[in-house]
Write a protein that binds this DNA or RNA. Sequence first.
DNA 1: AATGACATGTAAGAGGTTACATGATTGT
DNA 2: ACAATCATGTAACCTCTTACATGTCATT
Lengths: 180, 180
Amino acid sequence: MGNTAQFVILGILSKEPMTGYDIRKRVKTRMDSFWDINYGQIYPTLRMLEKEGKVTKKVEIMENRPNRKVYSITNKGTTKLKEWLLQSAEPESAKIETLLKVAFGEHLSKDEIIKHINEFKARNISRLENESKIEKEMKEQLKKNEKYFFPLLTVLLGKNLHRASIEWADNAIDLISEPK
Amino acid sequence: MGNTAQFVILGILSKEPMTGYDIRKRVKTRMDSFWDINYGQIYPTLRMLEKEGKVTKKVEIMENRPNRKVYSITNKGTTKLKEWLLQSAEPESAKIETLLKVAFGEHLSKDEIIKHINEFKARNISRLENESKIEKEMKEQLKKNEKYFFPLLTVLLGKNLHRASIEWADNAIDLISEPK
DNA sequence: AATGACATGTAAGAGGTTACATGATTGT
DNA sequence: ACAATCATGTAACCTCTTACATGTCATT
């Protein structure tokens, strides 16, 4: 089933009403390691969802900037969201360009390959640090409010994956550097 | 820089001449955990690469089935491939629908969430098994031929990632099952 | 008798990215 | 003084997937 973007939006709105701008931020801070969505998808999808009666909007008049449009999920939207949540998930997919460059590494020097792997490692370290920060915040809030339980679970997989990537990077650099 | 598909194809052809059908198989068996490409991209891209002089084709006449078109990389193609290999890789991206469903887990029962996680785990186990098999084969061949070194490295990251996912799944199921 | 491997390809559509346009307010 | 944040949106483009079309041969 296609058009997953709409369900991401409905899922986020099911927690609290938000603007398109806020939805993007929420995905970036909480789902960065397993999903992406950008304004070019968000704004048209919100309009579509409104037309279909799955969300409603309230306009807050702003001066000197675009009016805020705060979207809320409707009962119909919640029903559709639940239907989707019950279906089996699509298999995971990833794009790791670094591995393409490593796979064709015979055309590069050792140093060039190691440079790619180090850049890969740096991205993973920065994502891991970020998620550790978010994990801490969520654990703090979890004491007061149960609703952080599931988002916290997803952060844990992100951390696992980034840790595994960093370990691989160190290992790979060792193997490449080894005199043979 | 877009159109990565062309560089995947050039990279694969830089090892040995192949048909479009073979290229797809090669990606599926060796790059499944970090890249995907399908016929709808492969055949048109091969034609484009030929027009641009980056690959050449030899037609083997077949009876009762489509002629085999075996593509080889040219010097120009190799030059373009190397140019691309020297550029920094794009950041990694992933789509993990299971985590979306977990993130919105408050709309599901414990059992429904655990079902999603178990399906996720099963996929990861099957991929891990597959990669372990390929790893063994490659290690065997590596004794005779160095060219397996880089492909082997990429399989190792795949294994790390799948192992990390399986560990997360077990852990997550424990956390969800826990009486609280 | 049915499935899977071999082998090509196209057309339509869905999904996703990028660049552009606008511009005040807040923080460093 | 500069960058980031807030806040919307569109149009063009590129990428990618899916369904269709064709048919043999080998294996189970």
